[in-house]
Amino acid sequence: MSIAIDRNKCVGCGRCHEVCPGTLIKLGADKKAYIKYPKDCWGCTSCIKECPVYAISFYLGADIGGMGSKVHTEKKDGLLCWVIEQPDGKTAEIAIDPKESNKY
């Protein structure tokens, strides 16, 4: 369970660094973010929701059955949209209205 940060997409805004509840994300000399302690990620996805350019993706470790999918979120028309990119190229999207409650 951890995250990966795409250096090419990162714009160095520092919001992921600011929010991480484990203080696991650091900023390099060029201000770009990197995860210093990948094994210590709880998987809360706080950083993913903060990233304005979708540079951070979340994945399940192989030791807990992860199969290589990468997940990020996008905010579209007031919805929180979860994008799950699978290794075979398929993409699943689930949009959640923050104003709508869970039913279970």
């Binding site: 996805t45 979340f58 807990i64 059955g65 992860g66 979860w82 799950i84 699978q86 039913k103 279970y104």
Partner: peptide, 21 residues
């Protein structure tokens, strides 16, 4: 559908597990 969303709102890894498996 509701469960997939409910888990994304608290423990996203379970929804990802369902989808990628």
């Amino acid at each position: 559908e509701s469960l997939l969303k409910a888990y994304l709102n608290m423990a996203p890894s379970q929804t990802i597990r369902w989808i990628e498996s």
